[in-house]
């Protein structure tokens, strides 16, 4: 890796001040498992001049439950989320998403905030030595469109209608399904509004804004959540498709539904049409199948990834069925 300045931030304010000082050339590091891989592969045209370490900020590694509200510190390791009894009980989709992320070692290192702030997954974007200066790096074209796009977006592109790289987070769809709020140094953002595709960005965070925690309103009784991941291998793998759902039911009928897919689009893809299809109905095989169809009604796959549509549909159906009472 190239030389950089390393700063151990001791407070969030200090980290913010460092971000400002390096004006876009500073990068935050928490678990580091995504950032260091990118730096080792030299995938970007420019390197961070400074890494600002958040792990030295005390009080950001916790899981708290108070007045029906879970608050999870930004630095909480994924493994701790996966193992947390109350989260497993009440926010199953999140605990399960954390459990299925990457590998045991990476879950001991990776943080929840890092997982949702991680960069996109695309083998052109991530090719060594900036071999493909693509749209997301400010370049002129997306190489996946004419190339091998078997793992790319099935719901169209973004950034000048071009980039088809997917967002690979496992926890992001769970947080969106659970209607979580992302707490930053500046504000509180609904999880589904958090992700934004732009040149060099994957979130709506300002350049000097830091995620400090995540809040989840404890789902009411009568609601259930689920998370399913489909990957080529059973561990050490990013999702080929994943899906999370949180369903509230009363009297055998769905009263509220939030369903989110990921790794199928440039950002987490909330399957609103699937939600509409299931609300007011019982979760039966038939109704779930209809919701699955609705989830992918807008799919517009590339030449090599039409199969992902079928998998996405299946995962939506299965997460819904897993939420049956």
């Amino acid at each position: 890796m190239k030389r950089f300045v390393h700063i151990n931030a001791k407070t969030v304010e200090e980290a913010v001040s460092c971000l400002n000082r390096y004006g876009g050339k500073g990068s935050l590091i928490a678990g580091g498992t995504d950032l260091l891989g990118k730096m080792k592969d030299m995938i970007l045209p420019n390197y961070p001049e400074a890494l600002i370490n958040l792990k030295t900020i005390p009080g950001l590694d916790y899981i708290d439950e108070k007045d029906g509200l879970f608050t999870i510190g930004a630095l909480t390791r994924l493994q701790d989320i996966a193992d947390h009894p109350a989260l497993k009980d009440r926010c199953y989709a999140l605990a399960e998403a954390a459990r299925r992320t990457a590998s045991p070692h990476l879950r001991e290192m990776g943080t929840l905030a890092g997982n949702i702030c991680q960069d996109i997954r695309c083998w052109y974007y991530r090719n060594e030595n900036n071999r493909f200066p693509c749209l997301r790096k400010g370049g002129g074209r997306c190489y996946a469109i004419d190339g091998d796009n078997r793992y790319h977006s099935i719901f169209g592109g973004s950034v000048k209608k071009g980039c088809y790289a997917v967002h690979p987070s496992d926890t992001a769809p769970a947080l969106i399904a659970l209607n979580a709020k992302i707490i930053t140094s500046k504000r509180s953002i609904k999880a589904e509004d958090f992700f934004k595709v732009g040149v060099k960005t994957t979130t709506i965070l300002d350049s000097d804004e830091i995620v400090t925690g995540i809040q989840i309103r404890k789902p009411e009784n009568g609601s259930k959540s689920a998370f399913l991941k489909f990957a080529i291998r059973k561990s050490i793998d990013f999702p080929l498709v994943n899906a999370a759902a949180c369903i509230s039911s009363a009297g055998g009928k769905v009263t509220a539904a939030r369903i989110c897919l990921n790794a199928v689009y440039v950002k987490p893809y909330r399957a609103v049409k699937a939600e509409d299809a299931i609300i007011g109905k019982a979760i039966t095989e038939e109704n779930a199948a209809a919701a699955g169809e609705a989830a992918v009604v807008e799919a517009d796959p590339l030449p090599h990834n039409a199969y992902m549509v079928q998998i996405a549909k299946t995962l939506v159906i299965r997460t819904l069925l897993a939420c049956r009472e």
Partner: peptide, 13 residues
């Protein structure tokens, strides 16, 4: 107490 990957941890951290 955690099994971590030393290739992905900065020594200074």
């Amino acid at each position: 107490g955690r099994a971590i990957l030393s290739c992905m941890a900065l020594a200074v951290e």
